[in-house]
Structure formats: C-alpha cells, structure tokens
Design a protein around this nucleic acid. Sequence first.
DNA 1: CACGTAAATCGTAGCGCTACGATTTCGGTC
DNA 2: GACCGAAATCGTAGCGCTACGATTTACGTG
Lengths: 340, 340
Amino acid sequence: MAKRQRRGSQRVTMGEVARLADVSPSTVSLYLRRPDEVSAHRAEQIQSAIDRLGYLPNVMAGGLASSRSRVIGVLVPTVTNSFFSETLETLERHLRDAGYQLLIGNTEFDEAREEELVRSILSWNPAGLVLTGFGHSRKTHALLSQSATPVVEMWDYGQPGLDMVVGFSHHACGRLIAEHLLAQGRRRTAFVSTHFQRDVRAQNRYHGFRDTVEAAGGTVVLQQLSGRSHAEETGRLTGELLEAHPEIEAIACSNDMVALGVLFECQRQGLAIPARVAVAGFGNLDFTASTVPPLTTIEPPRHEIGRRTARLLLDSLTRRIDGDARRLDLGVRLVVRESA
Amino acid sequence: MAKRQRRGSQRVTMGEVARLADVSPSTVSLYLRRPDEVSAHRAEQIQSAIDRLGYLPNVMAGGLASSRSRVIGVLVPTVTNSFFSETLETLERHLRDAGYQLLIGNTEFDEAREEELVRSILSWNPAGLVLTGFGHSRKTHALLSQSATPVVEMWDYGQPGLDMVVGFSHHACGRLIAEHLLAQGRRRTAFVSTHFQRDVRAQNRYHGFRDTVEAAGGTVVLQQLSGRSHAEETGRLTGELLEAHPEIEAIACSNDMVALGVLFECQRQGLAIPARVAVAGFGNLDFTASTVPPLTTIEPPRHEIGRRTARLLLDSLTRRIDGDARRLDLGVRLVVRESA
DNA sequence: CACGTAAATCGTAGCGCTACGATTTCGGTC
DNA sequence: GACCGAAATCGTAGCGCTACGATTTACGTG
C-alpha cells in the first residue's frame, strides 16, 4: 500500500524540473504550453527531467495563474439514461482529446438541483458549460449570463436558448411517428409515456404526435407512467389501456424501453403485432432490431449531438461564432421495422 | 446573450466581499470554511455581502492555497453501461452531498487510456480516486502509490487491490447460476457472453460457471460475442449455438441484454423456455421482470456499491481505516423467475 | 567582426485564496 | 476599573503556476 505522506503531498514542482533541466521555471512552463517555442535541445532536457521526476503539472496553480481552466461542465438529467450517457461518452472523448476535463453533474430533472450544480461548476471557472434542454430556473439564467461562460444546450431544439443549441425537435419526432401510423390508416391511437415531469422532451413528442393525429381526425389516449419507464408498470398500464379502449389500433411509446414493456404485454395477451395493434418506440436502442417483431422507432442523433456539441463549444473558444451557426438542428430518422 | 467580458472574467473576489461586509478577507474565508467560528453578527454581514455581490468562491485559488481539492476522480470503463452509470449516479449524489465534485473518465476498457486518465486526474490533486476493477497498468500502479491518494477499486472483489475495495465476487455469480441450473438437472449448458476483452468481469463469471458445471460432470459451450452485447449478433450466435449443440438445455448469459437477445431468438425458433432450454442473465435490469417468460437473473448491488464506496472514501479522508474494513464484499442475490 | 534582428530564455509580479501566528475584543472577576 | 483567558478577528506569507516585458543568445550581413 502507498505510504501516506504529509497531507496534500504535492509532488514535484515545476521549479524542481527546471533545476534538474538547468533552465528557468518560465522555460519549463513555456515548453509545457507551447513546446515549439523552445529549442529542441532544451525541450529534450526538460522532457527528460519531467520523466525522471515524474512531474505532473498542478492544474490548480495553472488555472489560478491564467484564470482559465481546461474544464467543461456537463449537466444531464441522469447518466443512467442511455441517451444521455451515449452522448456524454462521445462528448467526453472529443473534449478530452482537445485537452479538456469534464465535470459531470446529474440534475435529476430538478431545476433547483441544476442551479446548485451550475453554481458549483462556475466555481471552477470552466471554459464552457453543456446543459440538457431549455428548462432552467431564473437564477440559473442570471448566473450564466453574468458569467460569460459559453453554454451549449443540447438534446433539444426549437427555443431561443441561452447561447448555443445542438439538438433536434421532439415535436417533429411525434409528428413523424403519427404520420407513419396515419399512412397505414390507423386513427385510434394511444401514447404510452414516462411521466412528463421526468421528461419534458417526451411531452414534446407527445404534443407533436397528438397534434398530428388529431389534425387528421384521429384520437389519442394518453397513458402516463408514474415515474421512469418501469417495465412492470408499463405492462399493467398497457393492459388497462387496451381493456378500456379496445378500439385502439396503434400505440406510440415515449421511448423504446416503454415499447418493450408494451410488446411483452401484447405477447402475454396474445395480441398480434402489428395486425391487431401497431407499436412504435423512440430511441432505436440496441435491442429494438431483434425484438419479436422488430420495433419501428426513431433514431435520435445521440452521438452526433456529442460530436457537434464538442465542436461547437471548442470553436466558440477560439473564434466568434455567429447567428445561424450557433444553433444546430440535427434532425432524426424514422426506422421502419415490422411492429408498425 | 451574455456580453463577453475580459478574458477569464473572474467575478467578485473574496476581498470585495470582505470590503462590503466590513471585515477582513480572512474572516470571510473563515466564515466560508467554518461558519460557527465567526460571530453571528459577522456571519450575517458576510452572508448578505455574498448574496448581494453574487460571490462564488474560486475553487482553484482555494485548492492551490490549501493544496487539497474537493475533487474525486472516478474511472469507469464506460458510462454507457447501465451497471456503471447507476453506481455512478449513487456515488455522485453521496459525494456531492459531502461537498465533493466528481471528475469522470471513461477508460473504454483500455489500460493505457486509464493510465492517461489517472495522470490527468492526479493533476487535480484529488481527494480520492475510484477505479473499476483490478486491471491496471504497471505505470498506473506506480503513479497511484507515489501519490498517496486514497483509492477505491469497485465492482470486483477477490484480489488484494491497491488500497480499498468495494464489490463482489463475479466468480461466485457464475457459481450461483450454475448451481441453480444443476439443481434442475440441467448439465448440458452454454455460456453466451460479451467479449471478455471488453469485460473481464464477464470472464470471471464464466469461470465460476464453468468450474461449477464441470465439477458436477456437466459441459459448457462458450459463445463469445465479438464486441459489446449487440442484440442482432446475439440472436445469430444463439441460433448457431443451438444448431451445433442441440443437446443444450440451459443457457447462461453474461448479462441481461444478452439474455434478452437469446430470449427473442428462442421465440423466433419456437423453443419453449424453460421447458426446452432454460435462460439466465445477470444484472436484474429493469425489464427482466416482465419479459416473456420473466428472466431468472442475478441482482448485483449497483447502488450499494456507490453508497459504500462513497462512505468508505469519505471515512478514509477523516480517519484511519484498517485491515478488514478496507475491503467490502457486498455479495449478490439470485433472482429466480420463470426462465430458469 | 561589429551590428541588427529574430528567436530563445529569463525574472518578476501577481492569480485568489488558506494557514497560522499575532492582535484585538469581549465578558466576567476581584 | 484593572486584569484575565477565551473567542473573534486580522495580517502576512505563501501555494505553484502563467503572462509579459526584459534580457540574452544566435545567426546572418555588410
């Protein structure tokens, strides 16, 4: 086991490296920040001193001195949701490759918590901030606008936003599904969803769906789960739904996990999919291609959001981005399989 | 939009708060660090100055001065995996409540990448570090042992470890499943798994399974997916497996996602579960209770790992933890449903 | 080979805060 | 009201680094 040294044991300092390399600390600092501005000879000396001493720069000291940090804060509702975690992973890779560290926080769908997290992240003097969606408290708005930190709101599109926006329209997703079902002549529909309080984006998809179906003279029964998509509850609610509304011929789900629950419930009840009732999801999760029957769903650009968010943020750090380029609608794709 | 101020616009400083509150900066600092050591009167003055100015402490300055930071680094293979992300969420909540920020990194199952991440996190002088599992490069070992940072290795148990350990035995998981299947008289088995290179823990579960089955005179056919659990490939490989080994009467899967793929493939082939072939998973993911038939699986202590890791780490920061208390085996629970 | 210019290197002054010893304030006592 | 100990407050000296102007070095030129 590591033997405990004195508290806060800051290892080797830049000065020690400088002494060993027989240069001034400034030169070491310069070498680390802009290696091509020191001569090849010194570079070699310095690097070997660094290696020999196992020097690690002290980020806090550097950050304090330069009053900026290679930190980017990212707030998602929950890393537990595979949509966000996949975006997060891509985002992390791209930002880290550019030399940034991610400070991640789970807002847990709570604006007050988000505000606290924003506060705590701003304490780091972050180079940028990534938030999920448009829902923020007044105070959060105030904090952000007085801090001058570049901000990207991701995973949504269609509102003005604080600064930069990378996402897609959830309303359009709902419309897309609705149009697909209507084209099959299905007008009696239901929308089974996680609770809107836990997911405003699901609510937007619902609105897009409902507006489109109703505009075509169809009906929509909304069934909301009490919390996050819990398979058991999904099954039960679907059962109740179909009993109360036997006329329903299509079920749109707020996401693929809900759709999976619906699928299994239909199996249990012996309802043929899509003959008796069509089922559609959202997310194009890995398993959807091989359910029985394969699930019709929507592919959101989860990785593309991460990639473009990283790029936009990094770009905004080096040059002025204006107008249109600050807002990206990445769109979605309907994946038609057999279930609808 | 926020108007850009001068670069690195550090907002209000502690000195400004002090001036407005008519006390010295030291008193403000003291108030922030140990509020009960300043008089009620001053406390009130200071707090109101803080509120009025919207003061946010500068973490970098504080960290530099005290040469410690309220940062804890966490490295997981990928946040995309729901096991890790759930642990992460719990860990985050607990550590944040204790005033710590998480610096998260995805190792992507790559020791070299992990080493880089460890290096980058050590630059922050973290109060602690959480790693996943026991597999680390030599250099990582060296870095950690010379840094004196408390380290918890989580999600595994049964090896000495670097410092502290919170997890459970994957070998035991495999054994548990095997014993359950053997008790039903099933001796011709298969193990369908994500690729071991992406998941040593799956390999350990396999070893536990195989050892137990073989010790009872049974057989195990191993089928490894090429990468992460991809449902389509799972279906295909399961098909091939059952064709090549029609005698197989039980399939253990490295996780529930794989099991889901197997389930659907059996449905497609019209094989009755569990009559013709039993299927068991690992993870007790949300959907497993309502598949058709419901899936027998193992419940790993995903949240408990987060909770206990947080507690152990925090405890180790305030007092000496010794011997036994540094290594926690949280165990697992077999969840018997209908599929096996 | 003195000179000029550009490239390389260096010295200094903080960045905003904390640690800690020094100083002041506050009640209570005699 | 002078005196005391404890509590509250303050002043100072950095933490390790970066920014930037000052200085030195290198190198080609007349």
